[in-house]
Write a protein that binds this DNA or RNA. Structure first.
Lengths: 332, 332
DNA sequence: CTGAAAGCGCTTACAG
DNA sequence: CTGAAAGCGCTTACAG
């Protein structure tokens, strides 16, 4: 039904090889090229990518496996990846795992069956651990979440430093009982918790934190648990925007004022964090830079498969807003 | 480098055809199947999807072309589409056009070159018009945005009714000077504007609206223009959540109180619309239902290519919040 | 149920 | 620069 390269060849009075050359690279005279392009238009020919891939052994495709397509962090990174791929003439297959290791496994297999040129992956903790013993056969760059040490090119936020910056800020604002809620499914949550604990210890303060599922509802439950466990915290930090949203709801539902009764802070400078009263203090991540850097590392890897593994650490930016305003400055 | 079906056949002591049958359908004895599966494990064989597609003339893939992957409306729909595709054993290629007709054209062509089984598309106005004269060769379902009448299966919100519900509500709250800002790149914005105008006319009120780019910044500019054009509106409705966000910022920047000085309302019940003070009145769309229905229509179309074109209209739900509270009830 | 053979639509050495 | 031929890795009539 659809025209094939043979139909075009017949229409142009040339061989299929010449059509292929006219459409791709390869030497060809200008006269024949024009002839072929006319025939392409006349026949409505569209190359069959499956055939092209099979023959050339090059999928021309990048796989992008993300934990949550509804999270603006990932969509921001995805846009940058897609842009870089487009510039390089590559396609992107975008996969959403919803933080489920089972879906990750399915997509990882699929990417191998698609014979993708390269893979960019934000693994759950479960999969990150599996990666230590079952290496992937595809050139891969990890983003946002670390894998087994020294095995994968990766682009990560300096999570410990970012958490420490938040703790330092809260301490400077006069807070001492600073609690934390951290996502348990990703290495990122673990690192942010570690940064929080280290910073608290450095200030001589006791850590008080919990790991929860990265969902708004889990943050509410975690908040309740923190309250039940001891003296009410003066401030709470959380490790991602979903938790921040849940925490905000829970704090409001408890009738607590921000920041008078409790200060809150989190990660990801999403538009709504600035729209909500009194504005939420967050760590802003360089989304586009993460995506671009991931693609750059991938291209380098494709060029030099045996080069040493690289780990790029990017810094977050602390965006200070009303939710962590100094208590002394706030009218009671 | 990677094992092919021949390697598996050799390892299992059978023919490639038998390996193919063991992995797919086709009749095969249990004994041979087990033998083959062992060989698959031993060789680490992964089928080459490009080869499979080329031979079977079936890509097993659905194309999903969306206008803005950063918009929760589209990610919500995308999740439902992906879920339905997964249940049916199909893959999804997700494409983001950022409302740019040029990128839409590129992806439309790509989908044909991928020989996708079917396509789900939210076209810009430009592309929707082009579709009238240049029909697609792929079975296609339009979502969110109408195409040329009677030519494409589609799943749409009843936009005129939704806009009318918002206008009726605002009128019931005592507002008369009700203005509107509508996205100009999609048919949806046009329809919502039409619904607004019709409802205003029905109430004997003059319409006062502008079309703007679907961006938060454009809403701010549009708001300023509305103010400059005449007596200040008592209420403003907008046609999507990006505009609602921009409008909220602009209203606040102008030092106006919501709803005392101005009431606002819009579309899409995103989490932040409930978190922001005083809560924003919005039309909630049935995201999952839109995605599921689109896939259902697509499957029906594949089953019966010549069946009559179907257009499914879904109703929005009006979520009333503080941003449109009655003026009389609000303390001044 | 099983195998040998053909062929999906391309690209790419190989000659000329 | 151009063409004839081979072959990428599968699946699927066709025999048996």
């Amino acid at each position: 039904m659809t025209a094939s390269i043979k139909d075009v060849a017949r229409a142009a009075g040339v061989s299929p090889a010449t059509v292929s050359r006219a459409l791709g690279k390869g030497p060809i005279s200008e006269a024949l090229r024009a002839q072929v392009l006319d025939a392409v238009r006349a026949t409505g020919y569209r190359p069959n990518l499956a055939a092209r891939r099979l023959r050339s052994q090059d999928s021309g495709t990048i796989g992008l496996i993300l934990a949550d397509i509804g999270n603006p962090f990932f969509t921001g990174v995805a846009k940058a990846v897609e842009e870089a791929a487009y510039q390089a003439g590559l396609r992107v297959i975008l996969c959403n795992t919803d933080e489920e290791p089972a879906r990750e496994a399915i997509y990882l297999r699929l990417m191998q069956e698609e014979r993708v040129t390269g893979l960019i992956l934000a693994p759950t903790r479960t999969t990150a651990e599996r990666l230590a013993t079952q290496p992937l056969e595809v050139p891969t760059v990890l983003i946002d979440r670390a894998g087994p040490p020294g095995r994968f090119d990766s682009v990560l936020l300096d999570n410990e430093a970012a958490s420490a910056a938040l703790v330092d800020h809260l301490v400077a604002q006069g807070h001492r009982r600073i609690a934390g809620l951290f996502g348990q499914t990703s290495g990122t949550g673990i690192e942010r918790a570690a940064g929080y604990r280290a910073a608290m210890a450095r200030h001589g303060l006791p850590a008080h934190d919990r790991f929860v599922l990265p969902q708004a509802e889990a943050a509410a439950a975690g908040f309740a648990a923190l309250l039940a466990e001891g003296p009410a915290p003066e401030a709470i930090m959380v490790s991602n925007s979903l938790l921040l949203m849940g925490l905000l709801r829970a704090v409001r539902a408890a009738g607590l004022r921000i920041p008078q009764d409790i200060a809150i802070a989190g990660f990801d400078n999403e538009p709504w964090t600035g729209l909500v009263e009194p504005g939420l203090t967050v760590i802003e991540q360089p989304l586009a830079e993460i995506g671009r850097m991931a693609m750059a590392l991938l291209f380098e890897r494709l060029r030099a498969p045996a080069a040493p593994v690289r780990k790029v650490m990017l810094s977050g930016r602390c965006v200070l807003r009303g939710s962590t305003a100094a208590r002394a400055l706030v009218p009671a």
